[in-house]
């Protein structure tokens, strides 16, 4: 993994986050949520800072980051696309929608397009099962998506 240099300012921000949770190691997951909100992802350098601040091993932080699917160590695209693969969406054809996104964007799940614009991920149930299959682009939810509709969604963000 490429080394990323975190700016001093960002590191200070991160330390403030840790401090707001009293540098309590039991708050690790809350700290990681805030950190991911701040940086968009959780690179190794960032985990080292958190480990130091909360006085726990880097292995502990890394173990938690990799355990939970919500945390990511890879930067997401400008427009992260998530396809719901919950059961309700699955039985209504979410897999075909996912295949179409892969085909059109020419990337696999977990990858980002070379221009950094789109990244593709799967998630399990946003609870909008009445609208299945569901696709999220950033925070925006698209309901009843068909493979044919995939190109239109991508086109919305392409310019």
């Amino acid at each position: 993994m490429a080394k990323i240099k975190l700016s001093e300012k960002k590191i200070e921000e991160l330390k403030d986050v840790c401090k707001s949770f009293n540098n309590d190691k039991a708050e690790l997951i809350n700290v990681l949520h805030k950190a991911q909100g701040l940086f968009g992802y959780l690179p190794a350098e960032l985990q080292e800072v958190i480990a130091r601040e909360l006085n726990i091993s880097v292995a502990h932080v890394y173990g938690v980051v990799t355990f939970y699917s919500f945390f990511t160590m890879l930067p997401k695209g400008e427009y992260p696309i998530s396809i719901c693969l919950g059961t309700a969406c699955y039985v209504r054809g979410a897999e075909k929608v996912l295949e179409e996104f892969k085909r059109v964007l020419k990337i696999q799940v977990g990858e980002t397009t070379p221009d950094g614009k789109f990244s593709l991920s799967c998630l399990r149930c946003v609870g909008a099962c009445g609208l299945a299959p569901v696709v999220l682009v950033g925070e925006k939810v698209y309901g009843r998506v068909s493979p044919e509709g995939v190109k239109d969604i991508i086109a919305e963000y392409s310019n």
């Binding site: 809350n30 949520h33 355990f67 699917s69 919500f70 998630l123």
Partner: peptide, 8 residues
């Protein structure tokens, strides 16, 4: 409140 982070 404590948050989960996506683990069934």
């Amino acid at each position: 409140i404590r948050y989960g982070a996506g683990a069934f």
